[in-house]
Design a protein around this nucleic acid. Sequence first.
DNA 1: TCTGGGGTCCTAGGACCC
DNA 2: TCTGGGGTCCTAGGACCC
Length: 428
Amino acid sequence: MQQRAIALVDCNNFYASCERIFQPKLEGRPIVVLSNNDGCVVARSNEVKALGVKMGVPFFQIQDMARRHDIAAFSSNYALYADMSNRVMSVLSQFSPHQEVYSIDECFLDLTGFRHLDLAEYGQKIRQRVHKWLGLPVCVGIASTKTLAKLANHVAKKQPAYQSVCNLNALSPASIDELFAPIEAGEVWGVGRRTQEKLTEMGILTVLQLRDADLKSIRRQFGVVLERTVMELRGVSCLTLEEISPPRQQIMSSRSFGIPVYDLKDLQEAVSSYLSRAAEKLRRQGSLAGAVMVYIQTNPHQSRAPQYRNGITIPLPEPSDNTLTLTNVALAGLKHIYQPGYCYQKAGIMLMDLNNAEQKQASLFASTFAQNPDKSHKLMQCMDRINGLMGKNTVHLASAGMARRWQAKNDRKSPCYTTQWKEIPAIG
DNA sequence: TCTGGGGTCCTAGGACCC
DNA sequence: TCTGGGGTCCTAGGACCC
C-alpha cells in the first residue's frame, strides 16, 4: 500500500493570536485569554509561555505577575474565534479535497495525492497563505498517520530549524529515531497524564521507547486505545480522516455564575437560558432529545462553605427539539433537586439520547405538543430565524429572565470585529 | 450439604482531547 | 475575593435472562 501523507495544520496560540490581529500594538506584548467568567488562563502568547505561566492556572494567582509584565488579559470572545476559525478552515480547504476539521484551531488535510510535490514546500505555501490572508500564524506537520502528523506538528512548533513545517515522510529512519529519542512520551496524542505516569513506571519515557515497546504488554496494561497509538507511531494507520463530523450524541450547556446565587429564581433563569442555547444547537443538527439532565452545584474550591451538588436525568415521554417542552422538563427537574440555603456556583443542562428527527417514533400517548406538532415546529423555526438574523437572544423565553444578574463576568472582552456591524474596526 | 455458565444490556467512572 | 466548558471512547461490573 502506498504511504499516505497526512498534514496537521494547527494555529499557534489561536485565541491570543486572534486578539492580536485587530490590535497590532499588542505585537510583542504578552497576552492571555481567560476562560468563561474570567477564571482561568486558556490561551497564552509565546511571551507569556516564556514567563512560565501554565495552561489552566486561575487568573487571580498570576495577577501580580500580570501587572509586573504588563500582560494584556482578555475575556474569551467565542464569536470572534469561531468566525476566524471558519475563515482559516476555508483557506485550508483550498489545499486538499480531503479535510477533517478537528477542532476550532486545527485540521487534518490528506495530501496523499500531492506526493509528487515537495511537501515541505507545500506546507510553507499553506503557512504563508493563512498568514497573508488572515494574519494568523500556523504550523504544519506532515506524516503517514494522524498520530505522527500531530507529532510532526509538535516538532515544527518547538524546533526552529524546521521553520514551522515538518515532514516526517522525508526523513530517513535513522533521523526519525534521533528526532524521537529526546521527546517525552507524554507529547504523543492520546497519552495523557495518567498514562504517562504509568509508562514512566514501566521505564518508557520517550516517544522512541513508546514506539518500540512490546505491543502485547501495551495492550494488556492500557487497552486497545494506546495499542492503536503505538501502531500509528510505527506508521500503521489506524485512524481515518473523518471529513464529515457525525452529529453530536449529547449537547451540554453550563456556566459558572458571575455572582453567588442562592435563589431558585436565578437558577431557573440560568437553566432556562442554557437550555435555549442547547436546543438551538439540537435543532441545527436536526436531532431530537430523548432525555434532559439538569444539575446544580456549590463551589467545590470553597471547602469551608457547605457543599451540595446534585443532578437529575428525566426521560421524555417522546423525543423533542422544542425549547418550551425541554425547558419545562428541565425546570421541573431543577425544582426537584434545589435545596435552599446553599451558595450555588454553577448550573448546567445536558440533552441526551439524541436521535435523528426524521426517524422520530410516535408516542402511544399523545402529549400536548404532539397534538399540534406543526405549530410548535414553526414556532421554533421562527425563533431560530429571528435570532439568526437579529442576533442571539433577540427573542427568548420569559423564564430565561431579563436582568440576569447571575451572568458570568467578561469585562475584558474585545469587540466582535468580524461578526457585528457596529463593532467593525474603523480606520481613522 | 451440594448451588452453572454464558450472553446481553446498561451504567458509572476513568481517561483522553481541545 | 477571584479556580472553564464541551465533547468522545473504553472498560468493568451489576442486573437480568435462559
